[in-house]
Structure formats: C-alpha cells, structure tokens
C-alpha cells in the first residue's frame, strides 16, 4: 500500500511570483480512483506537475508526502521503518518516479530519434536501479561497490548498460501490455510520440504507466481529445492499473464522460488553487449538469 498526501500545498511559477496553488490538501492511496475536476486555471495541472517535480514551479509552503508500507515494492526491496515516509519535494523527478509516482502528461513530449522500446526499457531499468539506491542500507553499499568491481572485470558480463531487464525480457513485457491496450505493435519501434496523433499519445501514456507499475498515477487530462473507441481502450488501461497493480489513480479531467468508464471513488473540485469540495461519483454528475458556479457559491457564499 502507498498513500500520497498533499498538505497545505502552496506553489508559484518559479520565474515570477504568480501564486497558483493556495493550500491544496488531498490524499490518494493505493486501489483508489480519484477524479480532480475544476475550471481552467484552477490549478489542477499545476498540482500534477508539482507532485512530479516540474522545475518551472516553486513550492512555497506545505508538503508532498509519500507513505509506503514495507511490502510496496515486493520481497526484493526491504523498506525499513525510517524509510516509509518520503517528502517528495526533497527529491528529483526521477527519484520520485523510482518511489512509484507517475505523471501522465496532458501534452506528452515528442522525442525524435528515441524509440519507445529503447526509452521505456531505459526508464524501467533506471527506476529499478534508483529504487535500489534509495533503499540501500549503508552497510550494503560497500559490499555492492565490491560486487560492481567484480562485474566490471568479468569477461562474461554483458554490456554495462544492459540493465536489470534485458532486451528480450522487455520485448515480452511490452508486447503483453500493448496487446492489453489493443495497441499496434509497430508503435514499439516508432520514435517516442513523434508524429503520434493526440489519441495515440494518450494511449502511449497509459501504456507507459502499465509498464512502469506506479504506486500512484496522476493522469492529467488523459481523456481529452479521444474518440469513443480509444476512450474505452484508455479507460480499460486505467482500470487495469488499479485492479491488477493496485495503483492509486488521481485523474484530472474536465468531463464526466471518462468517469462512466473509470468510476471514481472520490471526486474533488478545485477552485482558485484549493480543493473546494470533495464527494463521491454523484458530485461529478452534478458538475456535468450544473457547471462550477454553484460550488463557488457554496464555498464563497456569492457567485
């Protein structure tokens, strides 16, 4: 089990002093699906980016904590008691990823010259390696260093950058996940998002989450611009994250539509950089019908 906890989170744009988050409180834990809704400019995407460690934002107050139980990463990784709570704000984006945070981008980067396969295998191996480093005991450190030297001098060892998951093993994982998401296998050899349609990019984000097996996935408008077939594929992917891997999902969306396929346990409404209201699935339906003004009225007492 893992639990992401946002405490009184304040953030502003790093270059400038425009405040965007004004004290966000939110908790998402494993096996739960949360929907985060709200009008444009209310701070939803910023919340997502701050959780993942985007360098353009500066946190001025509050915490982003990740609580892990001892078995979060299986038997191979032993999580000591003093390593069960992490302040993500102290960590680099790749370290946060290693601890199980995943951000699905609203606008995924197009990266030419780097194939999906190469990127994802690199990411998966980097994540495993970084995780080992984060949870390594100091005593283990020395013996590991000795091991490493041994590897380097061994002629039987493969190339140093091969990583934990080899090419063949990774191909198998990738193929399996792509089938689940009904993705064409030709994607594997294409350059990362380069020339992908909007829908293909979103599908690819879910695929990446499926492969990286995050503890908490923050999905920023994963549903926008999808046709109905792809919306269903993407929704199936998100449900599988929760049902098969126990991932906790924080889903940012403008629309009720995806919530018909990915049923949230909790719905939150963001207004002016704060969570203004939280409720169950019925809240999303009410928002779809009535917009956000009534929430504003309820919270501030005026329209």
């Amino acid at each position: 089990m893992a639990r992401l906890e946002l405490n009184n989170l304040h953030a502003e744009v790093a270059e400038g002093d425009e405040t965007i988050l004004e004290g966000v409180n939110l908790e998402v834990q494993s096996d739960e699906i949360h929907a985060l809704m709200g009008p444009n400019g209310s701070g939803k995407s910023t919340t997502a980016k701050v959780i993942a460690g985007h360098p353009a934002y500066e946190v001025t107050e509050g915490d982003v904590l990740l609580h892990l139980e001892d078995d979060e990463f299986g038997e191979d990784i032993e999580i000591d008691e003093d390593q069960r709570t992490w302040n993500l704000l102290d960590l680099e984006p790749n370290e946060r990823a290693a601890l199980g945070i995943f951000l699905g981008f609203q606008y995924p980067a197009e990266i030419e010259g780097v194939t999906m396969t190469n990127f994802l295998r690199t990411a998966l191996n980097a994540k495993i390696e970084e995780r080992e480093e984060l949870f390594e005991d100091e005593e283990d450190d020395e013996s590991d260093a000795a091991d490493d030297e041994g590897f380097e001098s061994s002629p039987m060892e493969g190339p140093a950058d091969e990583g934990e998951i080899g090419v063949a093993e990774f191909q198998q994982i990738l193929q399996e996940k792509m089938e689940q998401l009904e993705m064409d296998e030709k994607f594997a050899q294409r350059y990362l998002n380069a020339g992908f349609s909007g829908g293909e990019k979103k599908q690819n984000e879910v695929l990446q989450a499926a492969i990286l097996e995050p503890s908490i996935a923050v999905l920023d408008e994963i549903d926008s611009g999808l046709d109905i077939d792809r919306l269903q594929d993407v929704s199936n992917g998100i449900n599988a994250l929760r049902d098969e891997q126990g991932t906790g999902v924080l889903q940012i969306t403008h629309y009720q539509r995806i919530l018909d396929y990915v049923e949230p346990d909790h719905v939150h409404v963001m207004l002016d950089g704060q969570i203004a209201k939280s409720g169950g699935p019925e809240l999303a339906e009410k928002l779809e019908d009535k917009g956000y003004d009534w929430v504003r009225e309820e919270v501030y007492g005026t329209a």
Partner: peptide, 14 residues
Amino acid sequence: AEDLFYMTSRGVDP
C-alpha cells in the same frame, strides 16, 4: 526542458 522533464519523470536520470 519539457522533453527532459518528460523523460526524468519516467525514472530516467537527468
């Protein structure tokens, strides 16, 4: 910088 963040957020070191 966005490309770099995209990749690091997936676990790849900078």
